[in-house]
Every structure is written in C-alpha cells, then in structure tokens.
Design a protein around this nucleic acid. Structure first.
Lengths: 231, 231
DNA sequence: CCATGATTGGAGCGATGCTCCATAAACCAA
DNA sequence: TTGGTTTATGGAGCATCGCTCCAATCATGG
C-alpha cells in the first residue's frame, strides 16, 4: 500500500501515473456509464492501461473502491450549502442527496449496502453531519439531536432508495410505468390488497421529487410538534 | 419451468422431491446460517442432493430466488396482526419488520436491493399494504393516504437498514462497538464534524429498538399534526 | 408397452475478484 | 557514478461463481 514508508518528499514519482484518486475517478465513470456490473477489475485495467496487481496495490478490494466512489460523489453532493434558514437547509441537503442518486443510479444500492455493512462509515457520517447541523440550529433540545437527526436521515435514505431508478427513462417511459403499475394494483385481490387498490389513482399521478419533499416536510412537522416549544 | 403444460393431476410425481418451495426454504436456511455469500447454487445442490440444472428448472435465476426468500420471510413477519388501534397496529407492523431483519441479517440488504431494482415488487407491495391499512383507519383524508404511507414506509426501511447488523454480536460486543464509535467521533475534526462530536454521548447510550420506535412516533406525530383534524 | 413430455444431475463455459511474482522505475547511501 | 532498497507496475493464473446444455431418468396416457 502507498505511503507506508518514509514519505521522502511527496515527490511525484514518474508523474504518478496511477493514483488512488484516478482509480476512484474512473470507477465513478464506469458506474455512471453502465451501472454496478460494469465496474470490474478488468474494465478498470482496460481504461487505465494497467494490470490488476497495480490496482490492488492502491485499493485493497472492490468494496473499498465502491465505498470510496460513493464517498466522493456524496461529498460533492453535500458541499456546504449557502447560509439559509435551518428548515431550508435540511430540505436542500435532502434534495442534494435525492438528485445525486438520480444522477448516479448505482449510488442508491451502494448507500444502502454501506449503511448496512458499516452503519457509521464515512459516508453515513457525512450525511448525518450535514443533516444534524441544521437540526441543531432548529431549536431542538440537545438531548433530542441524535434521535431527531436519525429519523430524518433514515427517511431520506429509504425514500431515495425507492425512487432511485426513475433516472434511466424519459418522462414518457415513466408515465407508462406508473400507468402499468397503477393498473396492476387495480387487479390485485380485493381481500388481500384493499389499500393498494384504493390508492392506485394517487400513485399514478404522483411526482417522486414532490413526494420526497412532502415526506421531509412531514418529518419536520413532527419534529416541530414534539421538540420545538412555542410553535 | 414447471406447470407449463397440462397439470395432469397435481399428482405428486415421484413424491415431487424437488419443489420451488423446498428450494426457497433451503435458501432461507443457508442465508440465516451464513449470510448472503453462503447462498450459492453449489451450496444448494449440496444440501438438496441434486444438480444445478434441476434447480434452474424451478427457479429462473439467483435474484428471483433471493426475492422469493425475502418475500417468504416478510410475509411471515407481517402476518395479520390482532385488531388494535391504528397507531398501535402501525407500530406493530414496523416492529415486525424490525425484528424480522434482526433475525435474518441478510434481509436488510435484500429489501434495499429489491426496493431499488423493482420499487413496486411483491415485497414492497406487502409492506405498503400492511402500513397503509392502519393509516387509512387513522382518519387521514383519502387524498393523503399515498403520501403519508410512503413516508412511513421509507422511514421504516431506512431505519431497519442501519440497525440491521446488531444481530450477530452479543450485548457486550454492542456496548464495545458503540463505545468505540463514540470515541472515534470525539476525535473527528471539530471544523468538519462539530455535530457528530456533540452527539457522541447520546449515540453511545442509545438503544436501537427504542430509537426506531421513537422515529415511528415522530412520523406519526407529523401525520397527526398535518392530516388529522381536531387533534 | 412404448412414446411423449416432465424432471433430474452434472459437465463445462465464460466471467469474476484476487494473489503472486517477475520486473521496472525511483530513491538513497557510499 | 554505482549498487542496493523501496516503491510501483503489468499480467499470468487460481478458485469460485452463475448459468447453460444435454444425456439420462421417471411418470403418464394413448
């Protein structure tokens, strides 16, 4: 692994043809272009004109690379927003993640995977911090910061997951997709699925992004009702 | 695939040694015992004393098997609860999922994967129905059923994901794990992570299940405040 | 009783992640 | 400069995986 011995200078060494950064960068390109299955060691060696050994000298294993790729994209998406009211900042952070997942369809699965495998890894930390900061500025008592932020983050992650794949189609496809699903719900067994049949119409006409924001607002309302006095 | 031609009788045929059900059952056993990586075609052929061809005659591909396994487990977990007040039923459904994920650590990743790949697949449908039914009994106007239920479901799925892996250790390990994480948060850069440092203590002492329920209640409060009149 | 179709078991293909090693390139001390 | 040490590279090869394909088996009905 690099940087193990004395960092003599930080000399560039043969102009450092292969860096961890360059690998992560290329990984994101591959993921964006063709999804998770396209990110293989062999695809990387092809694009970078190198061998698998060189890659593994920089990156440990595939999971680590995926984690780094996700971290890079999330870091960009959560770049410090402008100074606004706490509620608006929370919405901005949430939408930042929502849009990042829309631009990088592979990100949803990766976020979920990391949340599960390593619940307090760097990516989760970043998201928590970005959501928690405005939460603490919201007037919520200190003792409720953790609980409140957790709820918000969990909602955001769950919601981005379900709506992550609307990216690879156009509006037309989406309308068609919704119509098909809505129709399928109508044909469900009335005894087993009365509720789904009842909301088939609402579902057909809903907008994912709008629905996402509605959810954020709903949680924010709950926070205000429970934890903010005099509101 | 089976059942393609005339279902002569539903004769048992050599007592139908290999069925889709038996395969799914065995898959769940393997998953429970040793996690997702342990579910391989070869492991299945070993346990079932058959060949891969026989398995693929019943089951299409690996993803379909995982989906079936998840569906089976979720169906059990969401078995119709007793008739109670809507709010309690919602909590019961949520905890049912929470506990199912605790018992079957692989389920969290699988739920996330299916939510992403096929947002309205059978498993999601089942969860939506189970949550939506009490929501509609809550007094929420019909037009808000979809939105409200979505928010609840998304929170539940996000939360179960993060807390899914507390199963494979004992209480001691967990305390140690939390202490380690809490300590790590203290050492974070105060400029980059002021919030995480501030909540390090709360995090060390929190209980996952309790925190999960707190989140559900927070969302329920939001729903009541926004959509239930005279409350 | 045999012909047809339903079901099985396993060999084998293509692809993957990763290890291992023979080199090459940069560095350091003399 | 020179020789040795560390850093970094490229690729061959191994174990394993999902899945396909096919010859063999079993059950049933004409």
């Amino acid at each position: 692994m690099p940087g193990m011995a004395v960092r003599t200078h930080q000399s560039q060494r043969r102009r450092q043809v292969l860096t961890r950064e360059r690998i992560v960068e290329t990984a994101v390109e591959l993921l964006d272009a063709s999804g998770k299955d396209a990110l293989t060691v062999r695809a990387l060696t092809g694009r970078l004109a190198t061998g698998s050994g060189a890659i593994y000298w920089h990156i440990g294993n595939m999971d680590e690379l995926l984690e780094a790729a996700a971290d890079a994209v999330v870091a960009t998406a959560l770049a410090r927003p402008a100074e606004v009211a706490p509620q608006d900042e929370i919405r901005a952070v949430a939408l930042g993640l929502f849009d990042a997942v829309a631009e990088h369809p592979w990100l949803a699965a990766q976020l979920a995977a990391q949340l599960i495998r390593n619940p307090w890894g760097p990516v989760t930390l970043r998201i928590f911090e970005s959501v928690g900061r405005p939460v603490s500025a919201l007037g919520v008592p200190r003792d409720d910061w953790f609980t409140t932020t957790s709820t918000l983050v969990h909602y955001v992650l769950g919601a981005t997951a379900q709506t992550s794949q609307r990216a690879d189609g156009f509006e037309v496809d989406r309308a068609e997709f919704l119509a098909t699903a809505s129709r399928a719900w109508r044909d469900l067994d009335p005894d087993d699925y009365p509720f789904m049949r009842a909301i088939a119409d609402q579902m057909r006409e809903h907008d994912d992004r709008e629905q996402f924001l509605t959810g954020v607002n709903l949680v924010l309302t709950g926070i205000a009702a429970l934890h903010i006095k005099g509101d």
